[in-house]
Design a protein around this nucleic acid. Structure first.
Lengths: 219, 219
DNA sequence: TTCCTTTTGTTGAATTTTCAACATACTTTA
DNA sequence: TAAAGTATGTTGAAAATTCAACAAAAGGAA
């Protein structure tokens, strides 16, 4: 577990928990690490998530596929970020999303019951852990508000620009990478891929942005 | 406060907290009640929500208005339901939504700090309260997944049907009321109002549903 | 390198939405 | 009750999306 400390230190779930306590805590929580190759499903839609997941390396996408096979991407989980926590806390019987590795990735899984209910050893930092999980859940909700603000736009161009401006703001620079290829970006923005490609070309021709694959620069 | 006990007993935030303890707890939490007339803003976009809100009577809508004046409705808060908890917990400086009374309503406001940090009296039920808030936050996230599933549909008809089927499932009956008028439903589904009206007329003509204002029946 | 696969870009036709304008029905209040 | 205001339904034209098909570019494997 030691080699993951650097990432875990920056994980919202372990904020304000000193490094020296962290290792002991992980044992106490029964944390385990699994590896997933690109495109492998980490949790499948319809299953039950009893655990909280943390991406240690690589990245994963959260997605929904509806009855007709239309895919929506709800978000990208990067290294150090938490997933499945909402379904674990809400004790959802059948989760409505899948989490799929978008790159090869290592994932830490922690039984949510161990987080919510104090263990027999009564680790002193349990309260902090619960507080951190609460904050994380609250921030997930805020994140969904941002996504809804983007997808509430009515045209492909507006959705794309709203998303890119959000990315620029988050990166603190007009130059940044996005975690999606074209099809994935279309599935995130809930628009047609070919129309999205056409719109990117137009914006480039208009001198609004430069782009190369996953890299964008707003001008 | 006594007259609100019946509603608060059914509020997720106070689950598993006995009625006799509840009143004392409310005092301890510094809960206060405010009244808002229809269309009045309970919290304004851009402000800071330090409190958790509970609708005691009436109902409210959570909405976003973008730069161009386009309104999106994120959800309806009915009697007994909690709002603003995510922004309060995440300590968001400028909340991205407004909460507006959709009917005259009474609202209980509780300082979120009082919930998160144990008071000096150290009420025995504080732990339960925090646990309940966590569950509520998790369920809000699940709720957003449902809304995204609905608005990810590409046509007005599909969005409408997905929403109505969700309502029917929630009500446990093909016959139910929705909390929105036509413009509000359009703003929730993120479609054009006139197109929505036309689609409802078509579905009625096709014998798929019956409807009268806010009442719908799937056939 | 070459072949094969995947991704991205391009285009035009069909579908759907949006927009604007108006008619009708319903509510509220003076 | 009448008048005014609000909500809903209807329509056609303009704009945008979706869909399908294909070309070009990039990436991976042998």
């Amino acid at each position: 577990m030691k080699k993951y400390l650097k990432i875990l230190k920056n994980c919202a779930l372990f904020e304000n928990i000193a490094e020296e306590h962290l290792l002991r805590m992980l044992t106490c929580l029964g944390a385990k690490v699994e590896f997933f190759d690109k495109k492998y499903t980490i949790i499948a839609e319809g299953s039950r998530a009893n655990f909280v997941g943390i991406v240690l390396s690589g990245s994963a996408h959260v997605l929904q596929v509806d009855y007709y096979g239309n895919r929506s991407i709800l978000g990208s989980i990067e290294s150090g970020q938490v997933f499945a926590e909402a379904f674990a806390c809400a004790e959802t019987e059948h989760i409505p999303v899948s989490v799929v590795a978008s790159e090869p990735c290592e994932v830490m899984l922690i039984d949510c019951g161990h987080i919510l209910h104090t263990c027999q050893n009564n680790c002193g930092f349990h309260g902090q852990l619960i507080y951190n999980l609460m904050k994380d859940l609250a921030k997930k909700t805020v994140m969904f508000h941002q996504r809804i603000e983007i997808t509430s736009k009515r045209t492909t161009r507006e959705r794309l620009m709203a998303y890119l401006m959000f990315c620029a703001k988050r990166a603190g620079s007009e130059s940044f990478d996005i975690p999606f290829d074209r099809q994935e970006l279309a599935d995130y923005l809930e628009v047609d891929r070919s129309g999205l490609s056409a719109e990117i070309s137009k914006l480039r021709a208009e001198g609004v942005l430069e782009s190369n694959k996953k890299h964008f620069k707003l001008l």
